[in-house]
Structures are given as C-alpha cells and as structure tokens.
Design a protein around this nucleic acid. Structure first.
Lengths: 232, 232
DNA sequence: CGTTTGATTGATTCAGGTCAAGAATAGTGG
DNA sequence: CCACTATTCTTGACCTGAATCAATCAAACG
C-alpha cells in the first residue's frame, strides 16, 4: 500500500498499465461526463473513511473490500464487492468505511447525485442505485446474523458458499473458487483470526468437504451439500 | 416496570389490544395511499420471516425488534426501531426478518410501492423511504463492526449510548434511559448471552459508570465520558 | 400473599484468541 | 532460471473471555 491518498486525486488515471484483461474505456456516453474509468493497484485505497462521498463506483473488474478500523487497529471488513457491483453509496456527506482494492481493480466512478434527485429522477441508473442500496442492506443484515450468532465453522462454510455463488454468478455447476483475498481479509470479514480461519479450512479438508491445492487461495468445494448443512 | 415506557407507548394505543394477527380494518386512507393505523400488543408479531412484503410501517409509538432465528433456535436481533422510524422495507417480495412488538406498539401501514416507482416517483414519502433504507444500511454496517470486533464491555457501552441518544432524540442532557426490552433482547442484539449482559451491567455499576435502580430496566448513565471511552 | 417471570450471581467449561515456531509460496534481483 | 527474501499460511501449546450450567433473588402480577 503505497500512496494511499493519491487515489482520488488521480481522478482520470489514463495510464492504466495495471489494467487487467478487463473491459476498457467503454462507450462515448460514459466517457462523456457520466462516468470515468479508473484503475487501482492491489491494496491501493479507493477512498478512505471520512473522505467526502462525492462519487460512487461501479466495479468493472477485480475485487474491493470496504472496511473500518477501530482505534486500536482491530479491523472489520463490511463487505467484498465483485465485478458488476456498485459500492460507495452513502447517506451522509462522508464515507463511513474505506474501500480498498483486494486485487487490481477497474471501476467507473459516477458523480454522486443528491438523495432528492435519486428518489425523484427516473433514469435506469437511479433505479440501480436504489436497488443496490437495498441489496447491500440485505447483505449487511445477513452478515450481522453471521457475525452475531454463527460458529467459526458455520461462518467459513457460509463464506465459501457465498463466494462461490457470487464469483460464478449463481451457476452451481462449478466447484472450485479462486479466492482473491488473503486469510487476513477472510478473518476480518468473518470476525475471526487468521489462525482460526486456517484451522477451520484444514478441518474442512480433513473432513473431505473441500480440497486445498498447493496454491492455497484456490479452494475446491468437494461436498457442497455438507457445506450447506453447516450453513446453519 | 410499568410507568417507564408507557409515556411513549400509550400515545395512540386506543383499543384494539386484541385485534391481533387479523389486520383487517384497513381504512379508506390506505387505499388512497395514505396508510392505516394498527396496534400490536407486547410480543405480538407484526410480520414473520417469509411473509409477503406488501407494506412497510411507520412506527408511531412503542419499540419494535426485527430478528431472525437460526434452525436450532439461536436468534439475532437485527435492529430496534423507535417512534418515528420506518421499518419493513425490502428489496425482495418477502420479509427476510420478522418484526415483533417489544412494547405495545402503534404503526401506520403503507402499501408497498414497487422499486421502480420508488426510484422514480418524487413524493416526499418516496424520498423518506430511500433515506430510511440508507439509514438502516448505515446502522446495519455499524452493527456488523460491533458484532464482529467489539468486546462484551464495548458492545454494552455502545448499546447504552446509542439507546440514550435515540430515545432522547440526540439530546445529550438526559442521563437516564428506560429500556423497553428485556435482557434477552439486548443479548440477542449484541451477540451475547443474557448472563454476560447482566454481568457487564453489574460491572459498569461497580465502576460507577452507570446506576441500576430497583426497576432493572431503568439505567442511569452516571459517566457518559467513560462509556464513550469504552465505545472503542 | 404465593406464583411466575426476569435478572443476577457463582462455578465451570470451551471455542476461539494469543503467542510462537515453522513451512510453503510468491516475489525480486542477479 | 535460480538463490534469497519476504510474505502468507499453517500448526502447536497455551490462555482467556464469554458460554454454559445451576442456583438464587427480586419484581411484577394475579
């Protein structure tokens, strides 16, 4: 994580050397004032907690985490966002969580429209913003249930199923996932420590529910039914 | 503990204590899009998880909890709602949490408008719905941080400050709160057990941070600064 | 008054955290 | 392509905060 704050200043980051094989500049409509494409390196900050919330972001490629730090360094990751999702929607004038690139990321940044416009304009974008806010609310609520009442094993099982579903766009046929995030991200998302996440994954492998290849961020779901049973 | 909540709770509670699960009355008002007043007794269910989400509710008096049960009976309370707040907003066709009256409750039920209408109609109500969804999102996110990363002591401190602020409408002058909910509700909201909630409150009293009168649901905040320090 | 429900307290257990090595992987520069 | 780091991940030993189990205790309520 190098120059954190530069993220926002480089608004129209042309270079895009780090741009993965992802969707490029896009169409004139978007280039013409509606949205600007921007790229971020792994671990780069997209916005910080407390930054003015002047835009929201549509994720074109890569994975983003939104999180908050407590005064003593404890961290809670509120959500992961994958390609196609919108993040950065706020009620107040400031971002209440920071957003960071988990992997190299390309986004389209849209100028934020005030709430009154949002609830009264009838463009498809306004509709999408409202829908996204409600989806994020749903996820945050489900996440609270997980954090408040599930065991470590249940948390990890829920996480694996959820990631598999989102990354494969609800196609249940695939049984392998390539996690873009480190164990520490998983731990801070699930309210656990990295050691517990690791031990739990090892346990699942011993129980033949998953397989952990040498590249430890690849996980093969060998027994989704068992995972679903653990899903509580 | 009778006199406590009644001030707020009784506000509109005319008769209807027994008009339970049968929400028939429905006045011409609702048909006209204005909303119908309904009352619920303590612990009565306003809607259940899985019920069709055909309306949302504005809370006139009393306190409501929205919660979810895991298969084995573990419960997570997602939020408490107090007078003036709107709850029951959903993205999908069904309620994903149940809503129950913590105290006697009066609400106005509004017919739900579809998402497209919400994002395109410009009445003040649509605006309020969107604003409420965003507020609930904020709270759910903050709640996730609490559930995932705070200690029992920090959770209770946060809860007391939060309830004091909401019940007194952000007027910091008051230092006593009359909690409408049982210890079990607090525990299921904070992801703790009732024993831990009780022990933590006792500890706070020993430390002269709060006082616990004979009516145990009244709590006097003797040292808000100390609570804020615990707020992490 | 008993009776019931809710809250507190104490004794004990345990899931998950902490501390401390290692092992494996992925970078990095030569 | 290979040594050489530097991360990241795993594993083990141990500890602890909160859960569980089990009595009381105290209000609230007929």
């Amino acid at each position: 994580m190098q120059t954190a704050l530069t993220a926002i200043d480089r608004t129209f980051s042309m270079p895009i050397a780090t741009e993965n094989a992802a969707p490029q500049p896009r169409f004139a409509a978007e280039a013409a004032g509606i949205g600007a494409t921007r790229s971020f390196a792994k671990d780069e900050e997209i916005y910080a907690e407390g930054d003015p919330a002047t835009r929201y972001y549509k994720l074109i490629s890569g994975v983003v985490r939104t999180c908050k730090l407590l005064t003593d360094g404890r961290r809670q990751i509120e959500a992961f966002h994958v390609a196609g999702e919108i993040f950065g929607i706020e009620r107040s004038a400031e971002h209440r969580f920071s957003a960071e690139a988990v992997s190299p990321v390309t986004v389209i940044a849209y100028r934020r429209c005030p709430l009154e416009v949002l609830a009264s304009s009838d463009g498809p974008l306004a509709r999408q913003i409202v829908a996204t806010a409600l989806l994020n609310l749903e996820r945050a609520q489900e996440h609270a249930v997980l954090l408040g009442r599930k065991s470590a094993m249940e948390k990890v099982a829920t996480f694996l199923l959820d990631m598999a579903e989102r990354v494969h766009h609800h196609d249940d046929a695939f049984d392998a996932i390539e996690l873009p995030m480190a164990r520490s991200d998983i731990a801070d998302y699930l309210g656990l420590t990295i050691e517990t996440v690791s031990r739990t994954l090892t346990q699942l492998e011993r129980d033949a529910v998953i397989a952990l290849p040498a590249a430890r961020r690849n996980i093969v779901l060998r027994n989704k039914a068992a995972l679903r049973r653990l899903n509580a």
